[in-house]
Design a protein around this nucleic acid. Structure first.
Length: 213
DNA sequence: TGCCAGGCCCTCTTTAGGGCCTT
């Protein structure tokens, strides 16, 4: 296991940007997490990271090996999902959460934590939903395409949990900056970002005008 | 045997269908 960090108590304004690599698309169909990566942001600054491979208890498909670069050999000696997710549950306590297409990561987070009878107390926001509203001119809202669109610095690694969490965190900060620069909303709150993600695309401009300070 | 994710969003919609996005 290569868990980088398990941090202390987080301030209330701390956000954890996370990404799962998994054996497939649906925990309801028996899929499990095989890697979790996360970046902890405090006032827009990375203050901590978490990364861990985890053994799902069965062999992953060749598609997943090729897609993620995570091989069955790499997972043989990894800690179990229960151990890694227990430490990750400690890592996210007191934090709000962000992911790209959060409904996917939330399903796996909820599923894995339920198996070890753990929970979390933050809300979950989605950088994909925010992107569809703030960057409507973008032809694609895939994470890799948005990294290119916004010219976000990256190391050319995709479909690994920590690398994807890092660029998602950068995307999140780009979106916060865009609200300040383009819409005059100073220091946008996490709650506002969640509301933007739920606002109908056609009315998001009027919604933002109401929040100009 | 046949099926096989699920939420969001758009449109030729709402008693539906299909594309996008995540692995």
């Amino acid at each position: 296991m290569s868990v980088i960090s398990v941090n202390k108590t987080a301030p209330a304004n701390t956000v954890v940007v996370l990404d799962f690599e998994t054996t497939g698309l649906s925990p309801n169909q028996g899929d499990r997490a095989i890697e979790i990566g996360a970046v902890k942001l405090e006032n827009g600054v990375v203050v901590d990271r978490f990364q861990g491979l985890m053994n799902p208890g069965f062999r992953v498909s060749s598609f997943i090996e090729n897609y993620t670069g995570i091989s069955n050999r790499m997972l043989v000696d990894a800690a179990s999902c229960n151990v890694v997710m227990g430490e990750f549950a400690d890592f996210i306590q007191g934090c709000n959460l962000v992911a790209h297409n959060a409904s996917f990561d939330k399903r796996f987070l909820d599923g894995e934590l339920e198996l070890i009878q753990r929970s979390y107390d933050g809300d979950f926001a989605c950088s994909l939903l925010v992107s569809r509203r703030l960057t409507q001119e973008a032809s694609s809202h895939k994470l890799g395409d948005l990294v290119a669109y916004h010219q976000i610095e990256n190391e050319g690694i995709f479909h690994r949990a920590l690398a994807d969490a890092e660029v998602t965190a950068s995307l999140w900060l780009v979106q916060l900056e865009a609200l300040e620069r383009d819409h005059g909303i100073i220091n946008p709150s996490f709650d506002l970002m969640m509301k933007i993600g739920k606002t109908p695309k056609g009315s998001v401009v009027n919604f933002l005008k109401k929040h100009v300070q």
